[in-house]
Amino acid sequence: MTDVVKQEAAAGKAAKKNRVADKKLLLEVNDLKVQFDIPSKSLWPWAKPSKLKAVDGVSIKLYEGETLGIVGESGCGKSTFARALIGLVPAVAGSVVWLGQDLTRLPYKEMREKRKEIQMIFQDPLASLNPRMTVGDIIAEPLRTFFPQLSKVEVKEQVKDMMTKVGLLPNVINRYPHEFSGGQCQRIGIARALILKPKMIICDEPVSALDVSIQAQVVNLLQSLQKELGLSLIFIAHDLSIVKHISDRVLVMYLGNVVEVGETKALFAEPKHPYTKALMSAVPIPDPILERQKKIEMLEGDLPSPLNPPSGCVFRTRCPVAKASCAETKPTLTGDEAHAVSCLLVA
C-alpha cells in the first residue's frame, strides 16, 4: 500500500511539472532589491544617508493566465515591489525579465512601449482618477498616448465597449469621477487598465477601500475578465480570504523578504513558516463554533524598521520558535514551485 501511495504522489508531482511546462512564462523576477536613501539627522553636511531596504531580494515567476497573490503586513514591501516591476520605483539590483527582456536594462523609450503590456490598478479608486477629466477622457487617455493615429470616433467606440465590459453604462461617459461610488470608480480604473489590452495587470490592493459586497463584485469582475481576455494577474491584498479565492499561487512577504510561496491549496492547507501560520490563524471562519475553537497564533512585538533589520532571519525577533542560530544565518527559499519556505527550522 505504501508503494502505491508513493507512486501516486510521484505521478501527481510529474503531472504538476507537465502543467507548468505547458504554460508560457511571462515574468521572471530574480533577486530584486529596492532601497531608498533616508537623509541623516546629523548636523554634519557630509554625513551619509541611511539605506532603507524596502525590497531585499525577491524572486518570482508568473505564467500566462495565472494569478499570483501577494500578502503580508503593512510596510512589508508589497506595493514597492509591484511598482518596481514596471519601473515606477527604480531597482538597485536584480532583474525583471518580461517575455525574455530585462525591463531594468531597457532604455526609456523601449520601456515606455512595454508599459502597454503591463498595467496597474491602484488602491484608492477615487484618488487614482483625475477629478478634472470625464470618465470617457480618463479611459481614453492611454489610447491617445500610445495610438495617436486613432480617430475620435474610433477612440470613443473602444471606450464605450470597454465600459460595457466592466459593467458601466456608456451613457455616463461624460460624467466626472466624483459622481460615482467607490465601486464604480474602481471599475473606471479597471477599464483604463484594460483599454490597451495588456497581458498582465498588477492589482495593488484594489478592493481594500471598498465595502464587502462591492469587493466581491470587483473580484468576480476581475476573474471573468481574466478568463475572457487571457490576463495574468498579480493581486496584492491584506484579506487572505480574497487572496485564497482568486489566486493560483500565493507569496508571503515580511520586511521586504519572501518567507513562503506556493500553490494556494498547499499553502493554505499546510502553512510551514511561523509568520504564515500567524496570518492564517487570523482569517475568520464563518462557522461560529469553529471560530471559537480555533487557536490564534499571536505575534509579539512590532514590525522592525527596514532601516535597521534584524541580522540573520528578519522574522526572528517576533518568531515564537526562534533559536540562537537564526540570528547568524539568513535563510533562503527551499522547496519547489509548488511550495517553498524560507526558514532554518523547517525541514
Results as ranks from 00 to 15, higher is better:
Ile214Asn: 09
Leu99Arg: 09
Cys319Leu: 05
Lys6Cys: 08
Gly69Leu: 03
Leu143Gly: 07
Ala282Ser: 15
Val20Pro: 00
Val258Arg: 01
Asn220Ser: 15
Gly75Trp: 04
Asp287Ala: 06
Asp204Ala: 11
Ile60Gln: 06
Leu68Tyr: 00
Arg112Glu: 13
Ser181Ile: 06
Val135Arg: 05
Lys114His: 12
Leu299Thr: 05
Ser128Asn: 07
Gly262Asn: 00
Lys227Trp: 06
Pro142Arg: 12
Leu25Gln: 11
Thr2Met: 14
Leu221Lys: 09
Met120Tyr: 01
Leu103Val: 05
Val58Asp: 04
Asp37Trp: 10
Ile188Arg: 00
Phe235Pro: 01
Thr334Glu: 14
Cys319Ile: 01
Phe235Met: 09
Ala91Asp: 04
Leu267Met: 05
Glu73His: 12
Gly182Ser: 07
Gln35Phe: 15
Pro131Lys: 03
Glu291Cys: 09
Gly72Pro: 04
Leu279Ala: 05
Val71Pro: 02
Thr67Ile: 13
Glu113Val: 04
Ser208Phe: 06
Ser181Asn: 05
Ala193Asn: 03
His339Asp: 02
Gly262Phe: 02
Pro39Leu: 10
Asp137Ala: 15
Ala140Glu: 05
Ser247Ile: 10
Asp161Cys: 11
Lys295Phe: 08
Gln123Ile: 07
Lys160Arg: 15
Ser281Asp: 07
Lys23His: 10
Glu113Leu: 09
Val4Ala: 14
Met253Pro: 03
Pro310His: 11
Gln223Ile: 02
Leu26Lys: 07
Leu345Tyr: 09
Pro306Ile: 12
Leu194Ser: 02
Ile60Tyr: 02
Leu32Asn: 02
Pro284Thr: 04
Ser40Gln: 07
Asp161Met: 14
Ser311Trp: 03
Phe315His: 09
Ser305Trp: 07
Ala140Asp: 03
Ala282Asp: 10
Ala266Leu: 13
Leu150Met: 13
Lys295Asn: 10
Lys160Ile: 13
Asp287Ile: 11
Met120Lys: 01
Phe147Glu: 13
Lys244Gly: 03
Gln293Phe: 06
Val135Asp: 06
Asn30Lys: 10
Val283Gln: 09
Phe146Glu: 04
Ile236His: 10
Ile188Pro: 00
Lys227Ala: 11
Ser342Val: 03
Lys41Asp: 13
Gly230Cys: 12
Ala93Glu: 12
Asp102Phe: 13
Lys272Pro: 01
Leu168Asn: 01
Val172Glu: 01
Lys199Gly: 04
Gly75Cys: 06
Asn308Ile: 07
Glu300Pro: 01
Leu99Glu: 15
Arg112Ser: 11
Leu169His: 08
Cys203Asn: 01
Tyr176Thr: 01
Ala347Glu: 15
Val135Phe: 10
Gly57Thr: 08
Val155Phe: 03
Ala140Ile: 02
Ala347Phe: 12
Val155Glu: 08
